[in-house]
């Protein structure tokens, strides 16, 4: 197997323009969402890829982890990020690289017709390299998406002013998303402010929407409960799902005297009881 590409950089150099044209045609033909990317933008990205690919293979062999591949990796990261933002799927994004294979291999065949061993070596090395580069775009894509999810969760917490007044004297705070960001502290502070503002006696913190309760989350909750108590309000924690209840037990977290209820409705009833509000005899 070829460790170095001997002919490829030369072919890229000599047939750069033709390769570019073939490659772009290839992509325009196979593209499912025509018009999603402007042809000018596509041409620019392809031309830049070709330039950096030639540089990288000339100086850095076929090992895409080498520093010579840095600019190329960066370009692919950008392409991947912008396509991700435009709604392309990871495989559609990877096709940007994979679609280069056909035009490239055609040229290789033409150029190395008389040297089958070199043709096989070179094609093999090039296909491996392009596979790796293509996979790299999907990796970047996933990272970008995860970052987006985290950011959205944070924004959601930021945008919502989730404290609601359920009844005179009863507040509810439905918590959603991860509870260990700084944002959570702000939300908790908002609850405390609202308690003062409304003179509420009971605050229900509903954690149905919280995926994980670990020691930090528990600590946040307990601090809030303690602070609320200092201001004369009792907290009820509702929405502890069975799996989370088990986890809390294993962590040996002591929720102490905090009242907990399975769901918001039960918590609300308990709160009404506490305020001495007569309720219709129900279930």
């Amino acid at each position: 197997m070829a460790v170095n590409l001997i002919h490829l950089p030369r072919i890229l150099e000599r047939h750069g323009e033709a390769l570019l044209a073939d490659w772009i045609r290839e992509q325009l033909q196979s593209r499912s969402r025509t018009g999603a990317i402007k042809e000018g933008e596509l041409r620019e990205q392809c031309a830049e890829f070709l330039r950096l690919f030639r540089e990288a293979t000339t100086k850095g062999g076929v090992d895409m982890t080498r520093p010579e591949y840095g600019p190329l990796r960066e370009l692919l990261a950008n392409v991947s990020a912008s396509r991700g933002a435009q709604g392309f799927s990871p495989s559609e994004t990877a096709k940007f690289v994979f679609s280069f294979k056909r035009p490239l291999f055609m040229r290789l065949r033409e150029e190395l017709m008389r040297d089958p061993v070199a043709l096989a070596d070179e094609t093999w090395a090039a296909t491996e390299l392009l596979d790796e580069l293509g996979l790299y775009t999907t990796e970047v894509y996933q990272k970008a998406r995860e970052a987006v999810i985290v950011r959205q969760q944070e924004e959601m917490l930021e945008l919502s002013t989730p404290v609601v007044k359920l009844w005179d004297g009863i507040l509810a705070l439905p918590m959603i998303g991860t509870l260990d960001s700084n944002r959570t502290q702000v939300v908790m502070e908002t609850l405390l402010e609202k308690i003062v503002e409304t003179g509420s006696e009971v605050a229900i913190i509903d954690i149905t929407g919280v995926p994980t309760v670990d020691t930090l989350v528990a600590q946040h909750l307990m601090k809030t409960v303690a602070a609320a108590r200092l201001m004369g309000a009792e907290c009820i924690i509702s929405g502890i799902r069975p799996a989370i209840a088990q986890t809390i037990v294993h962590l040996a977290i002591d929720l102490g005297t905090v009242v907990t209820k399975a769901n918001l409705a039960d918590a609300f009833k308990a709160a009404l009881d506490k305020l001495g509000v007569a309720q219709l005899p129900g279930r």
Binding site: E146, I149, V150, Q153, T178, D180, S181, P211, T212, V213, D214, T215, L216, P242, A243, I244, Q246, T247, H250, L251
Partner: peptide
């Protein structure tokens, strides 16, 4: 947060029970 998401995804792929998923994700978080 990412650590928790990755661990949860893998645990789901392996068809861990919800309780076991939650336990492992929580341990990972700690």
């Amino acid at each position: 947060v990412l650590v928790r998401q990755r661990v949860r995804r893998r645990a789901q792929e392996l068809r861990f029970s919800l309780v076991d998923q939650t336990k492992l994700v929580t341990a990972a978080s700690e």
